[in-house]
Design a protein around this nucleic acid. Structure first.
Length: 665
RNA sequence: GCCCGCGUAGCUCAGUUGGCAGAGCACGUCCUUGGUAAGGACGAGGUCAUCGGUUCAAACCCGAUCGCGGGCUCCA
């Protein structure tokens, strides 16, 4: 980001985030406190287990941690003992003293103590940078700070150790795993208690818990498989309501809908570039060849492997090849073999993304600039073989319905299209009452062109500039992070915060200037030349799975009327015939208007019927008795809000229909 | 995939030192006829994740596998 853009960026950002300097200062204060707590934790652990090896202990958004290696396996039973030692250290009111050491001094210190991880960390500090230490009491740590002045600034009641987990040294799965103790710290006990209460609320809202309680989805790892959710009837209502919202919104925005198969031949993913780089995250291929064809293919592949080896040898050879078989010829032969292999086909992959199928739809008919922008939308099911440890309820799954669309446009149309996509995001946020969000703009790293990112330096610059320009002009709250783009173009991930302040990455919006070319997609331009379109991938509602998981937590399962699986339940005071007739006529009327209504005219006591409807989180209960029957009225009770009194039947029906139609919050 | 923890009825969970498999909710049948969060009785429901081992005896101890959870790593 250059200097001219800086002020605009700042103002756009601060407008949405509304974070005052005072708040920033407070945050820094909290970070200092937590960082100091990490040191106090390490001090305490070393007192209790003097042979512990230390790695690092930074503050986090939620608290702090410190990584250790030692024989003793930490368990939560150790926490009271460690916490007590930590409190003792705060009472000792040790001063945090900073000192600068030479590299040699630092090295000698840690080597003398056998702190091998610290020695390695020391090696990470670039030459010429100051090597700073902080000491409190007997504990000395390699640390850039900052800290509070004294351990006494940490209030003993404001500290709590939370959990023990493991973490790889330097976050690399090839490195040894250390034991990480997580804790949190606040200015005082009251703030800590508030935070703990919040955590408790989050546990209550856990989408896995509510999903089971409300009968939204089920997991069947034994018969169906891990990460492959089954949507139960009530959950399917959510899926279909979201889909309807997307279809209506996209229709109004000029999208057209398409439908594509769940699998495709190997050639598809070779062309898209996903194979072999992402093969690991895809389900393994289905082999469709008969025995003799497979033999033929294996022979071809063997010949290809030989030629590749030969080509590599020729590439390295200094003197010319006496046989006259040039490297170029070898390369051509390899390509010939490859097309023979793909022609044989035989391998099918479940799709891990919809883009290639949509690209083939683009290619299915000749395109003119008059057809652009072409906006292809589909709620397509994708399959990704996520690592077992990554699965998480319906938030991270192996089969997912993506609210996907691909927008093919010219470079001139790009900015408008991109802006319209952003506006669609904002529209959705409003419907769901998401007032806190942030867009994360991921750009490429010029140093890794040709490896992680397609080697198109000019297109990268051009598209990134366009995206940045739109973000700034729209006044959208965003941050820019380098080196996290997709391999085919810059991307935007949308982070939203649920009603209880938890952060989720919910949507994605990506620019693709590489893959359309790989598929040879073109349109005929005004000047009668063939041009390659730009492509925008966008999924404002992400996947059904993750978005519904998020909504469950956001609403704590208390969905607005238009989304509620059971919108209305009619309850009778008794099971006498005239009353039941009246109740049935109300349900029939609502049902004919496509309201999801159920009736309960059993002889059970009305209190029990209400309790049952409340625990099922039915949005609106209509209680009818003799009084209502005579007056042509219904008594309305709202979930969680109680009785709101009797109203004329026609008025209540009209209200319900309007609330649903307008998707009121 | 890696480290640690956990798998008992549809759900939430008891189950003592290894000695007959339990409760509440939900479900079914019957009774109960009532005005805004729970009326009563009875009943059904289990290969204690799976496989193997130790033991006179295993839900309990040991091992493996599968699954789930907390993290790490990853997320086109």
């Amino acid at each position: 980001m250059n200097d001219e853009q800086q002020p605009q960026f700042e103002s756009a950002k601060s407008e949405v985030q509304r974070k005052t300097l005072d708040q920033r200062e407070q945050m820094n204060e909290l970070m200092r406190l937590r960082h100091s707590c990490a040191h106090i934790l390490a001090t305490a652990v070393l007192r209790l287990w003097p042979d512990a090896l230390l790695d690092i202990g930074p503050p986090t958004d939620e608290g702090f941690y410190y990584d250790f290696e030692l024989k003793h396996r930490f368990t939560p039973e150790d926490f009271p003992k460690i916490e007590e030692e930590m409190r003792k250290i705060t009472k000792e009111n040790q001063v945090f003293e900073k000192s600068i050491q030479t590299r040699a001094e630092a090295l000698a210190y840690f080597e003398g103590k056998g702190q091998t991880f610290k020695v390695q960390r020391l090696g990470d500090i670039p030459e010429g940078e100051a090597i700073s230490f902080f000491q409190n009491g007997e504990f000395v740590d390699l640390c850039a700070g900052p800290h509070v002045m004294r351990t006494g600034n940490v209030k003993p009641g404001g500290i709590k150790l939370l959990k023990v987990a493991s973490a790889y040294f330097r976050g690399n799965e090839k490195n040894p795993q250390l034991q990480r103790i997580y804790g949190t710290a606040f200015k005082n006990k009251e703030e800590l208690d508030n935070w703990l209460k919040m955590q408790e609320e989050a546990r209550k809202r856990d989408h896995r818990k509510i999903g089971t309680e409300m009968g939204l989805f089920a997991m069947d790892p034994e018969y169906v498989g891990p990460g492959l959710p089954l949507w139960l009837p009530k959950g399917t209502v959510l899926v279909e309501e979201l889909e309807r919202l997307a279809k209506e919104t996209e229709f109004q925005a000029g999208y057209v809908r398409v439908k594509t198969p769940h699998l495709a031949k190997e050639k598809m993913y070779k062309t898209s570039g996903h194979l072999p780089y992402y093969a690991e995250s895809m389900f393994p291929p289905m082999e469709m060849l008969e025995e003799d064809e497979r033999q033929k293919r294996d022979d071809l592949m063997e010949r290809r492997a030989d030629l590749i080896q030969l080509a590599e040898g020729m590439g390295k050879a200094i003197s010319p090849n006496p046989s006259g078989y040039t490297e170029e010829q070898v390369r051509r032969d390899i390509q010939k073999l490859e097309s023979e292999i793909t022609l044989l086909g035989g391998r099918y992959y479940l799709k891990a993304m919809n883009c290639p199928h949509h690209h083939r739809i683009f290619a299915a008919e000749p395109r003119s600039y008059r057809d652009l922008p072409l906006r292809l939308a589909e709620y397509g099911t994708c399959y990704r073989y996520e690592q077992s440890g990554e699965l998480f309820g319906v938030m991270r799954v192996r089969s997912m319905n993506m609210n996907d669309a691909h927008l093919y446009c010219t470079a001139e149309q790009f900015a408008d299209e991109f802006r319209a996509v952003n506006e669609m995001y904002l529209k959705y946020f409003k419907i769901f009452g998401l007032d806190r969000y942030q867009m994360r703009f991921s750009t490429h790293d010029p140093a890794r062109l040709g490896q992680k990112f397609v080697n198109e330096p000019e297109l990268w610059k051009k598209t990134e500039d366009m995206v940045r320009q739109v973000l700034i002009e729209s006044g959208i709250n965003y941050v820019e992070v380098a080196n996290e783009a997709a391999f085919y173009g810059p991307k935007i991930d949308v982070q939203v915060w649920s009603a209880i302040g938890r952060e989720f990455t919910i949507a994605t919006n990506q620019v693709d200037f590489a893959v359309p070319a790989r598929f040879g997609l073109t349109y005929r331009d005004r000047d009668n030349t063939e041009k390659t379109p730009l492509c925008i991938h966008r999924a404002p509602l992400g996947t059904h799975e993750r978005f519904i998981g998020f909504l469950i937590e956001h609403y704590a399962g208390n969905f607005p009327l238009w989304l509620a699986p059971e919108q209305v339940r009619v309850l009778t005071l008794n099971d006498e015939a005239p009353l039941v007739e009246y109740a049935k006529s109300i349900t029939a009327e609502l049902r004919s208007q496509f309201v999801r209504v159920e009736g309960d005219w059993s002889a059970n006591p009305v209190k029990a019927k209400i309790a049952d409807a409340e625990t099922s989180k039915v949005h609106t209960m209509l209680v009818v008795g003799q009084r209502d029957l005579e007056a042509g009225a219904v008594s309305v009770r709202l979930h969680g809000k109680g009785n709101v009194g009797a109203k004329p039947r026609a008025e209540v029906v009209a209200d319900l229909l309007a609330s649903i139609r307008e998707r009121r919050a």
